[in-house]
Design a protein around this nucleic acid. Structure first.
Lengths: 95, 95
DNA sequence: TCAAAATATCGAAATATTTAGATATTTAAA
DNA sequence: TTTAAATATCTAAATATTTCGATATTTTGA
């Protein structure tokens, strides 16, 4: 269980989510049964490979995705704890 | 009750939250008992008035704050429904 | 070992965001 | 009615982000 996000983390997560491609990546990963790889996600977009790599890196650095290098592939899943902690932080604005 | 946010709205809200000043504004407004005004918030930051105005505008345009012009003041409160809808959208990444 | 696949990194151009100062607008109060 | 207060808008500079192409790295498979 993640304690609480600090404001710097919330800023970074918000920034990571403030892009249409990265939001779609989150959706794809979250809706997939198993781990997803970069090349799976890339196939869905008309973006250069280096651009995709950059977007995915931002999601990983914001801790929204957990990545695991598997051979020459990079697999990832949604970091549920961080998503929940972030959602909770936002919800607290309504108290 | 707000139906569901679409991805464009989520992107806009995330962008609005991806800035330290705007996050602090949300915190101040959410923690205040009553309505808050621009000049109250401005007092907390070392930013030009035009810059504050710009930040607040972004929060209002993202529907995170509801503003109400009261004489020469602009009062605002947190838009709880939108915050909840946004938090829910994020939470759904963990399903 | 060599070639191909998957991803990462670097450099640079294009675009977007942040910020402040100057000025405008609107309203309240003297 | 004049002045001051609160906020908004415009412009331009500074900074950050997005994107791509080229190249590097790592690993698998022939």
């Amino acid at each position: 269980m993640i304690a609480e996000l600090n404001i710097k983390q919330v800023e970074k997560i918000s920034k990571a989510l403030g892009d249409p491609y990265r939001l779609k990546i989150m959706k794809i990963v979250s809706q997939s049964e198993s781990c997803v790889q970069c090349c799976d996600v890339s196939a869905e977009f008309h973006l250069a490979q280096s651009t995709m790599s950059h977007h995915i890196k931002q999601l990983i650095e914001a801790d929204l995705l957990i990545a695991d290098k598997d051979g020459r592939n990079l697999k990832f899943v949604v970091n549920k704890e961080v998503c929940e902690a972030y959602a909770k932080y936002i919800s607290n604005f309504t108290l």
